[in-house]
Simulated scan of single mutants.
Amino acid sequence: MVQLSYYPSAIAQAAQRVNEIDSQLMAVQHQINRFEGNADRVAAFEMDLKNDAQRKSRRFEVLLVNQEYQQAVDMQMRLSVEKANAIAHLEYLRNQFSVAKLEARLAIAQQLSDFESLELVGL
């Protein structure tokens, strides 16, 4: 069984990890938005495109050939999974801490109960 004093720092570290991943996700999302904005600009200024469907298709083509965009989207997916796992780990630690506190309270209550029983018997 892990000591109760272990949990606060472990929980803080796990929360910090979630925050770090979230920060990385925001940076990747910013990069994706920039690529998508550039693709929108390219599609908007091509005069031979006649309607929105053609512009959307051109935008898709521009993004499809952009390796950096594809890498950023892959990174976003990977970081999203990593963040979900980090959040699950954080919740696991919080729940373990709650259980450990309850077990400690139960042990104290049992000790008090045993002590009171001994007093009743006169020992």
Rank of each mutant, 00 (worst) to 15 (best):
V62Y: 05
Y69F: 14
L64V: 04
H89C: 00
E91M: 13
A86K: 01
R58Q: 07
S57C: 05
A88V: 04
N66W: 05
V73W: 02
S80V: 06
M75F: 02
E82H: 03
Q70E: 12
L90V: 00
S57H: 11
E91F: 06
V62I: 12
E82R: 09
R59S: 06
L93K: 10
S57L: 13
L64Y: 12
Q76N: 03
L64F: 10
D74M: 10
Q70H: 12
E68N: 15
V62C: 05
I87S: 05
D74R: 09
N66G: 03
A84Q: 13
L63Q: 05
Y92R: 12
E68A: 15
L64M: 12
A84T: 10
S57G: 09
S57E: 13
A86V: 01
A86E: 01
V62A: 13
V81S: 13
E68G: 15
R59W: 02
D74W: 04
E91P: 03
E91T: 13
V73R: 11
E68I: 06
R94L: 11
Q70C: 13
L79A: 02
K56N: 15
E61Q: 10
K83P: 00
E61S: 07
Y92D: 12
K56S: 14
N85S: 08
V62D: 02
F60S: 13
V81T: 15
F60Q: 13
V73C: 09
V65D: 07
Q76V: 00
L64D: 11
Q71C: 08
M75K: 08
D74L: 11
L93T: 07
V65P: 04
A72R: 05
E91L: 13
N85D: 11
V62L: 07
Q76W: 00
R59V: 02
R59E: 01
R58N: 03
R55H: 09
A84V: 03
N95Q: 14
M77T: 02
Q67G: 14
E68M: 12
N66R: 03
L63Y: 02
L90W: 04
K83L: 01
K83E: 04
I87F: 04
K56V: 06
R55C: 10
R94V: 13
M77I: 02
V62E: 12
S80M: 08
R59K: 14
R94Y: 03
Q76I: 00
N95V: 04
Y69G: 06
S57P: 03
V65N: 06
Y92C: 06
R55T: 11
R59G: 04
Q70Y: 10
V62W: 06
L63C: 07
A72D: 05
E68T: 10
A72T: 02
R78L: 11
N66D: 14
A88I: 02
D74Q: 14
Y92W: 07
A84Y: 06
N85F: 01
L64N: 14
E91G: 04
E82N: 05
E82I: 00
R94D: 08
H89L: 04
E68R: 13
E68Y: 12
M77D: 03
